[in-house]
């Protein structure tokens, strides 16, 4: 696939803004529309653009596969911390009478990890497609 110079130039301009927007949607998931899944999908589109800029950028797919698997375990651990702090599983690990800003930390952390997991998963799907017949 030969990509034109205009597409490469525009992709270079757009890339940081898309990454910023993806992280914004992921981190602000508990206040605004969006969340881990949507932000992760937008981050995956940013990586997709990087294929136009430098086609040989992503080489080590095994690292991404490992990262995705570890993220699953990390999500389970974060969601079950509350078993030790409050005695209940799958709920906020902070005490119930703490301030609202502090309590939203739980949702932010969980959204961030879900976003990383979704984006690595989607990147893996289309990078295996690209690498398949080189």
């Amino acid at each position: 696939m030969k990509t034109s110079q205009i597409l490469i130039c525009i992709s270079r301009v757009l890339f940081p803004f898309i990454v910023l927007y993806g992280f914004y949607i992921t981190i602000n998931g508990h206040l605004t529309p969006g969340g881990g899944f949507q932000g992760g999908a937008i981050l995956a589109t940013a990586v997709l653009l990087s294929y136009f800029i430098q086609p040989e950028k992503i080489r080590n797919l095994n690292l991404l596969i490992k990262l995705e698997k570890y993220m699953f375990i990390v999500i389970l651990i974060v969601s079950s911390i509350s078993l030790f702090t409050r005695g209940e599983i799958f709920t906020n690990f902070l005490p119930i009478n703490s301030s609202i800003n502090l309590k939203s930390l739980f949702l932010t952390i969980l959204n961030l990890f879900i976003g990383i997991k979704v984006s690595t998963g989607l990147v893996l799907v289309f990078s295996t497609f690209i690498e398949e017949g080189k």
């Binding site: 529309p33 999908a41 995956a44 589109t45 497609f129």
Partner: peptide, 25 residues
């Protein structure tokens, strides 16, 4: 708006790219 965000990212960017790669292969 939640669904709209997911649809924009997946439906109009990632799925067409996978189809295009499949056609060129």
């Amino acid at each position: 708006p939640d669904l709209a965000l997911a649809e924009v990212a997946i439906g109009s960017a990632i799925t067409p790219l996978i189809y295009i790669i499949a056609i060129s292969k």
